[in-house]
Every structure is written in C-alpha cells, then in structure tokens.
Amino acid sequence: MDTLKIYAAMALASLRARLEYKVAFFAFLFAVIFFYLAQLGALLVVMVRFKEINGWDMGQMAFLFGLLTFSQGFAALFFNGLANFDRMLIGGEFDRTLVRPLSPLAQIIVSKFEVSTVAHGIIGSVALYYGAKLSGIHWTFWKAAALPAVIFGGVLIQGGIRLAVTAVAFWTLKNESLVHTVVFSGKEFVVYPITIYNDGIRFFLTFIFPLAFVNFYPAQYFLDKRGETLFHPALQGLTPLVGVIVFSLSLWAWKAGVDHYQSSGS
C-alpha cells in the first residue's frame, strides 16, 4: 500500500511535468484524437461503400474497433513510457532506476505516465457503445461480466507486447524501429476481422503475436458469430488467459534483459 502511494506520487509528478509544456501536451492530445477519428472515419467510408467485410457489418466493425482502441488506451496509459526506452538505456538514465529502492520497471512506467491516452479511451468507448447498439448485441449476464475481463486481457496482451519489444533493447541497445513496426503498425492488422487474411497471417496473429485475442476472438463471442469458427471455438473465451500468459512471458523477458544489462554493462 505504502509502495503504491510512492508510485502514485511519482505518476502525479510526471503528469505535472507534462503540463509544464501545455501547448505540446494539448497538441499531442489533439493529434491522438485526430488520428483515431481519421482511422474510424476511413473505416466508416469503407463500410458505407461495401456494407460488410467478410460478413461483418458496420456495427460489428465498430465494436471490433472499439475493443481494440479502448484496451489500447489503457495499455498506452501504462506502457507508453517504454516507447523511448532505448534512449534511457543509452543515456544512462536507466542506471538511476537501479540505485533506488524500487522496481526499475515500475519507476519507468510511472515516470512516463501518458494521460493523453484518455483520447483512446473516449473514442474506444464511443465505438464500443454504438457498435454494440448497431449490431444489437443480446447482453446476457455472462457477456456483461466478460467485457471487463476481455478489456483486461486486451490490456495485458498489448502491454505485454510493448514490454517484450522494449526488452529487446537490452541486447540491441536501439529498438526504435522495432517498436514502431510491432507496436504501432502491428495493431493495424486487427482493425479488420482476421478472416480476411490468408492462413499464415491468421496463424501469426493468433499464436505468435496474439493480437487477434484483443478484439477478434472476443468479438465473435459477444456478437454470437458462431458460424465462422477459426481454429477452435474455445479461442473466443481465452482472451484473459492469453493476456496473463503473454504478460508473464514479457515480464520474464524484461527480467532477463535487466540481468543481461547488469552483467554486460551495455
């Protein structure tokens, strides 16, 4: 509890530091909102023109987008600070986290808290709400209970992927391009139902780089799309479990990275 208070104070300090540059802060916030609105707009244009993509209509597509963006907002809130981690490593800033009586990872997370990700959250929840409404989801008790669990799993998956990619920097020192490819471009794939891709990509997004669990598989469950099972119907309920597995593996990779750093001094 005490430790949580310390981290909360550090997070607040980083927020105050961000607000020192008010113009930059709001410009970034605006850019984030604009980017996601543009993405959503492009999707809507496509949907108006084609009515449906592989059997997914506009409401269902919005729901898919909402699940992705909402959980992404949460993941970014905590893990955005990792985006420039290679610079911390090269500049020696990381050393400082090792000489404080706290966890290095937690220090980095709270020192680079990214509040502007509320933008993802807002857009994501609007898309979720209208998506659910348009596609007429029949909300049962289990579905209502599953939604937070699915969001939680989605956050763990996206956060875990960011963490794993970040840990690579302990060996390569620079990983900026990898971060951009994997973290920021990778999720573009799952804006669409992954059934539109060939087998290789479906397999990749399910078992190697399991972004499909963030939105595609749980959306199948929520939208009762039983007709188009991919691999196995059980996958639709596995998002929280996949999240826990991905995040645990990433934490392990991160810890291995810290050990490597401490023993190689790079």
Binding site: A9, M10, A17
Partner: peptide, 16 residues
Amino acid sequence: WWDLPTSDSFEMLRAI
C-alpha cells in the same frame, strides 16, 4: 525531476 520545481524532487525522494 528536470521539469519540476526543485522542491518537488526533494518531496519525491522523501516518499521514495
């Protein structure tokens, strides 16, 4: 803490 008043850094360290 680069962007904050110096006193804030000391307060942070008090907590840490």
